[in-house]
Nucleic acid binder design. Structure first.
Lengths: 235, 235
DNA sequence: TCAAAAGTGTTCAATCTACACCCATGG
DNA sequence: CCATGGGTGTAGATTGAACACTTTTGA
């Protein structure tokens, strides 16, 4: 894998993605660690000259997670000057390549479009890219210090996710195709960061009319078997 | 006024602004008409090399409306390929300048960040820029056909404005400093596109705790004088 | 037959909606 | 003293939160 070439990308434009996954208990996000620096950052990328923005983000996610057709939502575009940190970028390149030119397109200012994704944690084997030596899951309530304004970006993503949770059936990709009501509730609780009342949660979800009920799941537990549900995919 | 020079702006990045105003009855937006083409478009602009994105948009608005410190909200970033319409841009330049070079930075692809603003309709004398020969108010429910994807951008802005109306005290800049409850209600009705119940609207607004009541306004009408209100500006 | 988890019912309070009523004002 | 618009009161419906009760399952 080689470094990205300037010529094929739109200059000054990047995207950063906050990739949420659900472990069965906690909400997590994918973070990269750069070679030999101890620095963490969000996975991001650049947009090709003749590539739609949305497609660029999908491509990046595909490369890093191997997943096709995942839920993606754009939430904000970051364009302040505090974002500009050429020295940091220089150190990242230096940590990997002995010779770094005085000028490099990665040292320029970038305006970055923020996206978040919701994916099935269990289906992913995260792939590091050329600049990072590891990529891994971290609890959203224990995110380390990140480069640039990436902590701020994570905050904004979480806020957006929380306030739009009901309207869209966001949880689609955080769970397997079929799931129990308890699992769905755990997803909500992990995202909102607070316990929900079981009985009321069930009623509320069913009243939304977005769930289809299937046969019961005999879990082997010594208790009543729960129904399985799936989301009704509309148009 | 001269054409924008490529060198001072970030390439491939633009913003488009949907500027809402309230006439006392209807919600309106500002649209530009290009010289000798009959084409309409949203007012937009570019970001200088060392300028924060937000500041670039404020600057553009200041130049076009003369207003300082107005409510601005970023709502979406548009990056599809359907946006790219070099022929249209060429015609716009041709309509004004006899000689147009084969290549020009304005013919390149742009990713555009959408913002909307809420301003006091009565305080503005819209200023056309170098490319447009007029800029004027149009009813939101009678927007003409616009260039590029600008009709789509207006749709998105309206949708965002409607769904976030309660949370933020958005109406701040659509009305004069002090206003009656009836005026505020008219703003809401114009934005939401539906009548509100007078009594309940009053209670709801007061319960939000964001309004300060002032002395009564003796309007001269033969009826009870209404109170004046202003928004309480917090932190 | 017991414990645990799932599904459903019930109650009470808070909120929303519609409409009624009274008040201030100028003609 | 009447018409008009503004402010507040109230009954009924709707929604939401808390908690109780019943059912199913394997041990």
């Amino acid at each position: 894998m080689s470094l990205p070439e300037a010529v094929q990308y739109l200059p000054h434009i990047a995207y950063d993605s906050v990739i949420f996954g659900f472990s069965g208990e906690k909400l997590k996000i994918l973070l990269m660690e750069y070679h030999n620096t101890g620095w963490f950052a969000l996975p991001g990328g650049f947009v090709k000259i003749n590539e739609p923005l949305d497609e660029a983000v999908s491509r990046g996610l595909r490369e890093r997670t191997g997943l096709e057709s995942i839920y993606l939502e754009q939430f904000y575009t970051f364009g302040s000057l505090e974002r500009v940190r050429p020295e940091a970028m220089r150190k990242i390149l230096q940590a990997q390549h002995k010779v770094v030119p005085e000028k490099h397109w990665l040292f320029e200012r970038f305006i970055s479009v923020g996206y978040y994704a919701l994916i099935d944690y269990t289906k992913v084997e995260p792939q590091p890219d050329a600049l990072s030596d590891s990529i891994d899951w971290y609890d959203v309530d224990a995110v380390p210090q990140l480069l640039f304004d990436h902590n701020h970006i994570v905050e904004k993503a979480l806020e957006h996710l929380r306030t739009h949770l009901d309207q869209k059936l966001l949880s689609v990709n955080l769970l397997p195709e079929r799931f129990t009501m308890k699992e769905l509730q755990q997803v909500y609780e992990a995202i909102l960061g607070e316990k929900q009342n079981r009985a009321n949660f069930q009623r509320k979800m069913l009243s939304l009319g977005i769930l289809e009920r299937h046969e019961k799941l005999y879990s082997g537990g010594s208790h009543k078997a729960p129904y399985l549900y799936s989301f009704i995919v509309q148009n």
